[in-house]
Nucleic acid binder design. Structure first.
Lengths: 199, 199
DNA sequence: GTCTATACGTAGATAGAC
DNA sequence: GTCTATCTACGTATAGAC
């Protein structure tokens, strides 16, 4: 079975190159403006060959989203056990913002996009989203019990607020202004997220 | 000249109907997915007639953005003089979130959209953006001087953070969850924006 | 100024050779 | 499994009659 395994590895490597291109294009132009021709060109493959690996443009984007969620889950698993829940949540938010600033965070599609419908029926994607939400949800509740996060805020609101850092337009505008380094931008947004604009 | 004035009024009214449709469609699907056919259908006008009023799809969207910015500027002008700077900023953020929840806030285009280039060269649009930024910028600095907002945060960051409430995806997800009324959602997000998730 | 009808470009997806 | 070439659908924009 070694030949099969090798072939499979080659196929996975090829698909990883494709998804890298999808990630980049989704981050820079979003789903609607990304064309399959561009993906094929950036991956160095013919469009028809690409369609042998992924059945549709939606499948292509979904695979990129799953890949990104897997990276987030891997980071969640790699965090030291003794770290506090807020530190863990901040580590994930920091990673999401770094990824966005690096132009590698696939952008959220708009509500009526064909992608939204496809994702809402995509079992693999949904499983990743739920798994990451569960992980973060536990930390949020712990942090609230320990008095580290406001206990009277709905945990769901906190979760959404953290997810939203991955696509926060403030990151982009601050970067374009040129007045701050990436690390400074992330520190500023972590601060406003957790302690707000006041005081 | 009364006939001309009447004709102009009719034309403005017609264009207002068109822009209402544009606003709604921009809010629900974004610029790329909005088609000029849909705008014409929703406005009850033929597509060719629509192009007599607006030279391109980009002009159509820009006009809708200008209309929205004019509403924000009118609100800013109508705020009581004796109100504090933070109250004024919150009033604008509240209005932006209400407008988004009502499905009337035209969505930000993605970075590489044709719309971005058109807007960045659209003098009328730019003037409105600068004017609103200046108004809010003064209030931000006042609030910082009075110790009501963190004085060590860049005013620009505060400004962007407030603008971002107009397109915050958290609003949409909280609304879909069905657990809160619109007013509750707005109150929650005003709180997290100004005092954060902590404590 | 409004309409119907159409030109023109482009994007997703596929056929079929190798 | 990869390629070139092509199909089909659709969206922007315009022509031309009234």
């Amino acid at each position: 079975m070694e030949a099969v395994s090798f072939k499979q590895k080659m196929q996975l490597a090829r698909e990883d190159v494709i998804l890298e291109a999808v990630n980049h294009l989704l981050a820079s132009k979003g789903f609607e403006l990304m064309t399959v021709d561009e993906v094929a060109a950036e991956a160095g493959i013919a469009k028809a060959s690409l369609y042998r690996h992924f059945a549709s443009k939606e499948e292509l984007a979904a695979a990129a989203m799953v890949r990104m969620l897997d990276q987030a889950l891997a980071l969640a698993d790699s965090l030291p056990e003794q770290a506090g829940p807020v530190e863990k949540l901040q580590a994930l938010a920091r990673w999401a913002m770094q990824t966005q600033l690096a132009g590698q965070m696939p952008a959220l599609p708009h509500a009526n996009s064909a992608l939204v419908g496809a994702l809402s029926r995509h079992q693999v994607y949904l499983e990743r989203v739920f798994r990451l939400s569960d992980r973060m949800g536990e930390w949020i509740v712990q942090a609230q019990e320990q008095g580290l996060l406001a206990a009277d805020l709905p945990p769901q609101l906190i979760l959404y607020n953290l997810f939203a850092r991955a696509c926060d337009p403030v990151l982009h505008f601050l970067k374009v202004s040129g007045a701050h380094s990436d690390e400074e931008i992330i520190a500023l947004l972590l601060r406003t997220t957790f302690t707000g604009l006041a005081r």
